[in-house]
Structures are given as C-alpha cells and as structure tokens.
Nucleic acid binder design. Structure first.
Lengths: 189, 189
DNA sequence: GTCTATAGTCTGATAGAC
DNA sequence: GTCTATCAGACTATAGAC
C-alpha cells in the first residue's frame, strides 16, 4: 500500500504488540485498540493482518541495517572495534527499543510466501553486514572457526538474549556485546 | 490428569505439530486429525489445549535432562569432552528428533502461570546441568568469561540452530557441537 | 480516515449416545 | 475411549454511512 507517516506510526505500535503477545495471538481488535481506532478502520491502512506483519518486519530490518551501518562508520578499521560495534548495535535494536527487529527475527516464519520472498533480500543484506565483519575478524586472527558457523552461532547467541535479558538488571547491551566477543577471543597475555 | 501410554503417544504427536505450526496456530482439530481421532475425543485425555502444551513441554524437558545425563555419564572427567557431550546432546534433542524439546524452548511463553510455575524447576534442573559443565570448563581454563553469560550465550547459539539448521546439509549435530566449543577455546599450538 | 454493523468462518470446549 | 452434534464466543475482513 502507501507509505504515509500515519502508516509508519501504526506500524510502530503494531510492532510493540507483536513483541509482547506474538503475531498469532494478536488480534486486529487488539491492534486497533493500541492505535486508538476501531478494528474496521485498520483496513484502510493495511490490506490484511499479514500486511501489517510484513510492514513491521520490513521496518525492523531496515532499521537494523541503518543502525549497524552507522555503527560501523563511526569506528575505525580495527576488527575488534567493528565486531563490538556490530554486536552492540544488534543488541540495542533488540533490547533497548524492544521493537520491530525482534518481530523480524521471531515472527519471520509467520510471513506468507510472497512476503517472505519480497523481504528475503533485506534480511540477507543485514546478514551480509555481519558476515563481512566476522570475515575481517577471522582474517585478523582475532577469532577462529568456520565463517558460516561463527556467524550463525554469534547471531544466535545475540538473538536469544531477548528471552532472558532483564532491562532492569545490571548489564547494558554494550557490556553484553563486550562479554560475547571477549568469550570468542583468545585471552590476552 | 493420568499418565497412560496412550496419553504419552498423543503427547508425542502433539509435539510434532507444535514444532511445525507453532502452538497458537495449532487447532484442536488439527491435533485430533494428527492423532487419528475426532476433536471431541481429545478432551478425554487432556482437560484443555493448555494441558497438552504443558504435557509436551514436561516430556521435552525431562527427555533433555535424561539424554544430557546419559551423555555426561558415558564420558570421563575431561572438561572438553563433557562440554562437547553436552552440546551434542542438546543439538540432538533439537535437530534430530525435532521433538518436544523445541517446544519447551520456543513455546515456554505460551504456558499459563500455573503451568509455568509447575515446570520451572524442571527447566532449572536442565540449565543447572549446563552451568555445572561450563563451570568445569571455566575452572580448567578451557574457556573464559562470566559464568552466567557464557551459559546464556552458549545455550542461545545452540537454541537458534533450530531456525537455520538443514538436516539434509553436510553437518551433523556432533560436528556442530565441535565447531561451537572450538570457537570458544583458545587455538591450539 | 473513522465509524457502525455484520457477514462468514473458525475456535475451544461440552453433552450424551454407543 | 471414541463418536456425533452443537454451543457460545472470537476471529478476520467487508460494506456503506459520515
């Protein structure tokens, strides 16, 4: 459909609900209430419930790419700094906003075939950022292992934080990022 | 309710469906069809849909504990061997059977408060096995980092394999386990 | 762009025969 | 232990007024 500011705001609110309840048990009535309108009005902005999910996932992935891109630009060529920046950016999109990126990761399977095909290149672009940074770290001897598997394991470790991270706890996303890459690097000295 | 062989078999079949479709979008009619009975008959074995989920998660976690326990018993006191055995056991419960353990991890949030309270000690017992093995590896200097965070990151990396692992691919759960702990250990030589 | 009203379908669960 | 039949409510989505 279109791409109005109104639709963007509605998408943002849908993301919060999808994170809290999960896509399947979020009803259009719940979405409408969260948005302050009646359920019938929702379908003026989105063709169906599926389209809302696709909009959330697209926004979440685009945002993750933008945040990661910025984080990489503001740090030098040091592989460790870049790895840290990437992990911190990833965790912030997941844990600080608790936003659309969580939906993109956890509700991907709920997309229909058409939407999945349409959004796959975005997801791939984000993962390509990760694999490039991990390649640099491997080449520098900072970490070691198979390129594909290291990427998957690192992203998995980060993605699963959503399930146990306590925002009221003592550790920030930045500290978590440091601990994760510290775990992968050979001890100093 | 009871604990008949019939109920156990029905629970096993429900697990397959919950993995494939997710709990929320699995209907009692789908469950009944998978079990070869009519939907009304289901409620002779389970009070409601929630109880089926609780049965699956209990079975999945008990099985994971049993498999892990056996794996640890059949290897010596070498911290690396124990870490490897634990990771392999975990991956096999997730990737080979594609069974109830996946449901336990991915649908935990769908349990009602009562079931969650009832099953928390089982989940904790399984995680305690992990933390003990990780403690040994830390004490031996095999890996390094914060005990709590290393546990969470390792389990996260393993749990997320469900989302990308291809059973038809080249790598076995055993190889994956080796790659993961290899990634955490300082390079030899 | 939002509303009311509702169509049409599916849902979890129950009752009672066999 | 399984069946048939069904209830009562919830669901997504649509139509048409404003």
């Amino acid at each position: 459909m279109n791409d109005s500011p109104r639709r963007k705001e509605l998408t943002r609110q849908a993301a919060r609900l999808f994170v809290r309840e999960g896509f399947d048990r979020t009803t259009v009535r719940m979405l409408a209430e969260e948005m302050g309108i009646k359920s019938g009005s929702l379908f003026h902005h989105f063709r169906d419930k599926q389209e809302i999910l696709a909009a959330v996932i697209e926004a979440g992935t685009r945002n993750a790419i933008a945040i990661a891109h910025d984080a990489l630009e503001t740090c030098d060529r040091d592989p460790e700094a870049r790895l840290h920046a990437m992990a911190r950016a990833h965790l912030e999109t997941l844990l600080t906003d608790r936003n659309a990126h969580v939906v993109a990761l956890y509700e991907w399977r709920r997309l229909d075939d058409e939407a999945r095909a349409h959004l796959a290149h975005l997801r791939d672009a984000y993962e390509a950022l990760w694999e490039a940074v991990i390649d640099e770290a491997l080449a520098a001897g900072l970490i070691h292992g198979d390129r594909f598997l290291v990427s998957r394991f690192v992203m998995g470790a980060l993605n699963w934080t959503v399930r146990w991270y306590d925002p009221a706890g003592a550790r920030s996303p930045d500290e978590l990022a440091g601990e994760l890459i510290g775990m992968l690097m050979a001890p100093r000295g």
